[in-house]
Every structure is written in C-alpha cells, then in structure tokens.
Write a protein that binds this DNA or RNA. Structure first.
Length: 278
DNA sequence: ATGACATGATAAA
DNA sequence: TTATCCTGTCATA
C-alpha cells in the first residue's frame, strides 16, 4: 500500500513509538547490519516523510532513509507484551530500549531503500521532489508550472515524483476519473482552474488516507453496498479492468503506460482532442 | 511446488 | 523501452 499517505502515517507511528527514546537498532537479515551497529542504542529524535520517502533522524547528522518501493512494509507495533523473534527477511528492526518488558518495535521488510544518509543527502533528494499534498507548506503552483509546460500525458506527469510527490498508481487513476480527465491528455492542455480542483481534491483524499490508512475515493452515492469485499476499499477504476464503471456502467479500460497499469473509463473520461489537431 | 502479480524507481540499451 | 531489485500473497498445479 505504499503511496504518500502510508509514509506519512508511518512517520507519525514511528514518532509515537520511539521519538525521544533510545532504540536498539539491528538488521536481522544482515543487509543493513553495519549501519544498524552504528545507530544501536542511540536516541531516535524524529521521523518525517516527503512523498514516498521516509527519514528517521538519530541526531549527529545520521538519518535512515527508507523507500518502500512496490512491496516494502514497515510494521510498527506499540507496547508489545514481548518482542517476537524476527519473521522472514527483516532488514531493519527498531526496539525501544528503555521500556522494560513491554516494548514497542518496528520491522522493515522488502524496502527498495534502507540506507544511512546525512541531512545534505536528504536535502539533495528532497530538492528533486515536487510538492507533497500532505505537507502544509506544499505549493501546488510548483506542480502546475511543470504540468502546463509539458506535452506528456497527464497520467504520466501525476506519477512523476518531481512533479507531485506521493501520488501512486491508485491515487493517479482515481483522481483522473473523479475529475473526468482523459489520462492521455497533454499536461499543457489542462487549465489552471482544473488543476486547482484536482489539487484540492488530492489534498482531501490523501488526508483521508492518512486518517484511515486506506485509499477511499468512491463517493457514497457510487459505493456498491452489495459488493462483498470491503466497501472501504472500493475504487472507481483502479484494478477494475473490464468491470462496469461505477458511474456510467461502461467497461473500465486498461493499458500499460510507462511500465505501469493505467485504468480509466472511456466514457467518463472521453478522449481529449486539441483544437490544433482539428 | 510454482508462477503471477503488486499502491515503485532506477540504470542501461 | 527493457531488465532488474526488493518480499509477500494469492491462485493454480
């Protein structure tokens, strides 16, 4: 589930479990062992996220940079009765060192990135990221300046982390459907007002994702109550290829775009034709 | 047991 | 564009 909301939640969870406390740091799997040894026993100052990136600050310019990639996960367990032996490939394990018998712990698995960084390295990375809708200081105009100047399809631009940080395949597909935007439309063909609406919606959707831990994009009137699966996890088009659109009933379409599956409704999101081509 | 697939990103061709 | 990495889960055999 790692889109931006997941990382934002994770930063909060890590803060609540560890911030201000000494932490045992280890790498049961071994791939982060050297850095873990360096950090072991030190105080975890805070955790923060920007888009899909997470940093855990240990002071003295030592940060752990984490990127979950497609299937990484970071499980945070608070006040466990006991800390269980690691299951599977645990790249990084944090355990509160000052909590006696009951202790909070966190296990990282499958991450694309788990590496020691300096604050300068963090800054260099952040400089390459677009605004994160979950950050209060995010400036949607920075994204807009990129979009309005690009002939690339808006579906690709939305997934480009240097345009907007934190959108993944689900928010991308769902946002475009909610705004009836053709995924293949060049960024430059959008109008500023449309982007303002999309950004505001994105902020609300992702904030909901942070609250609930789930991506919920379907408005109540479009929810299928009869559907057996969890109504909280319904989508308009994401991973619904061939199924009827929740709004108009047309079969949801899918196509690979830049190596990722794209989903859209050909009727709700009709093909954009530029005036220049007519 | 085996294979396909996944809410990601990068480097090489 | 393609290959590659990281790990877990689910469907199929």
């Amino acid at each position: 589930m790692p889109e931006g909301h997941t990382l934002h939640r994770l930063a909060t969870a890590l803060d609540e479990a560890f911030a201000g406390h000494p932490v045992r740091v280890s790498s049961p799997q071994g791939r982060f062992a050297e850095s873990a040894a360096l950090l072991d026993g030190r105080t975890l100052e805070r955790a923060e996220s920007w888009g899909k990136h997470l940093w855990v600050h240990f002071g003295h310019d030592d940060l752990v940079h984490v990127h979950l990639g497609l299937y990484g996960r970071f499980d945070v367990v608070r006040d466990a009765a006991s800390v269980p032996p690691p299951v599977g490939q645990v790249r990084l394990r944090l355990v509160r060192a000052d909590a006696g018998e009951a202790a909070s712990y966190a296990d990282l698995r499958g991450a694309t990135a788990c590496e020691l960084q300096t604050s300068a390295q963090r800054q260099a990375l952040v400089d390459r990221l677009g605004p994160d809708p979950l950050r209060a200081d995010a400036d949607p105009d920075l994204a807009w300046q990129r979009i309005r100047r690009s002939r690339a399809p808006i579906a690709g631009l939305l997934m480009d982390q240097s345009v907007v940080a934190g959108i993944g395949n689900v928010y991308r597909a769902e946002l475009l459907h909610r705004h009836r935007v053709d995924p293949f439309r060049p960024g430059a063909s959008l109008r500023a007002a449309r982007w303002s609406e999309m950004w505001a919606d994105l902020v609300a959707l992702m904030a909901d994702g942070v609250r609930t831990g789930v991506i919920r994009t379907v408005r109540p009137e479009h929810l299928d109550v009869a559907e057996v699966d969890d109504p909280g996890r319904q989508s308009y088009v994401y991973r619904r290829a061939g199924e009827p659109c929740r709004v108009c009933g047309t079969r949801v379409r899918t196509r690979e775009l830049q190596g990722r599956n794209l989903y859209w409704c050909g009727r709700c999101q009709p093909r954009f034709r530029s005036r220049a081509l007519q």
